[in-house]
C-alpha cells in the first residue's frame, strides 16, 4: 500500500530518509523522478541517505505508475518522494492508490507565493492541488512528522 507521497525538492535527505520513513513505518521509498531515474551518479549519491532495512527504488514517473498499477507495490508500505507539485499531480492523477500528499519543501521560483515555511506555490500548482483535494486526496503541508497537520486548502 502507499502510505504517503511527499513533495520535497531535496528528494531523499535526512529528514525524509530518517524521520518520515520511521514515522510512516515504510519499508520502501519510491523516488519518482524522470531525471534521477536516468542519472547513475545521482542515484549513487542518494543511496547514501538510504536507511537500513528499507528499499530505495528509483523510477521515472511513468514507470512508477506502471509499477503501482501492476500491483507489485501492494505487499510493501511505500513512501513516495517527488521533487515538485507537477510530478505529485501526475502521480495522483494516474492512480487512486495515493490518498495522502505531504507538501514538504517547494522551491521559491518566479511568480510563486509563500504559503508556509519553505513552501512556495504558483497559481497552476494551487489549481492542481485543489483539484486533487476535490477528488478526495488529503493534502497536508508539514515539514517534520511531529509538526501539526495543516490542510493545504486552509492556506490558499
Amino acid at each position: 500500500m502507499i502510505k504517503m507521497l511527499r513533495v520535497d525538492y531535496r528528494l531523499v535527505h535526512g529528514q525524509v530518509a530518517f524521520a518520515w520513513t520511521n514515522f510512516l513505518s515504510a519499508d520502501a521509498i519510491l523516488l519518482a523522478n524522470d531525471d534521477v531515474a536516468k542519472d547513475d551518479f545521482r542515484k549513487r549519491v542518494l543511496n547514501l541517505a538510504k536507511p537500513n532495512g528499507v528499499k530505495l527504488i528509483f523510477k521515472s514517473i511513468a514507470d512508477s505508475l506502471k509499477a503501482i498499477k501492476s500491483g507489485v507495490t501492494e505487499k510493501y508500505k511505500v513512501f513516495i518522494v517527488v521533487e515538485n507539485i507537477q510530478d505529485a499531480y501526475e502521480m495522483a492523477k494516474g492512480t487512486d492508490e495515493i490518498k495522502l500528499i505531504d507538501i514538504g519543501l517547494v522551491a521559491d521560483r518566479e511568480n510563486t507565493k509563500n504559503i508556509a515555511k519553505s513552501v512556495y506555490v504558483n497559481e497552476k500548482e494551487i489549481q492542481q492541488l485543489t483539484e486533487l483535494e476535490n477528488k478526495g486526496v488529503e493534502v497536508v503541508v508539514k515539514q517534520a512528522p511531529t509538526d501539526r497537520d495543516v490542510q493545504f486548502s486552509s492556506l490558499v
Partner: peptide
C-alpha cells in the same frame, strides 16, 4: 553499534538497482 557504523569515510560506490 548502529551509530558507530554511521561514523565512516564516505565513498560513492555503484550499487545494485533495487526494485519492488
Amino acid at each position: 553499534e548502529e551509530a558507530r557504523k554511521e561514523l565512516k569515510v564516505v565513498r560513492i560506490t555503484a550499487q545494485e538497482a533495487e526494485d519492488f
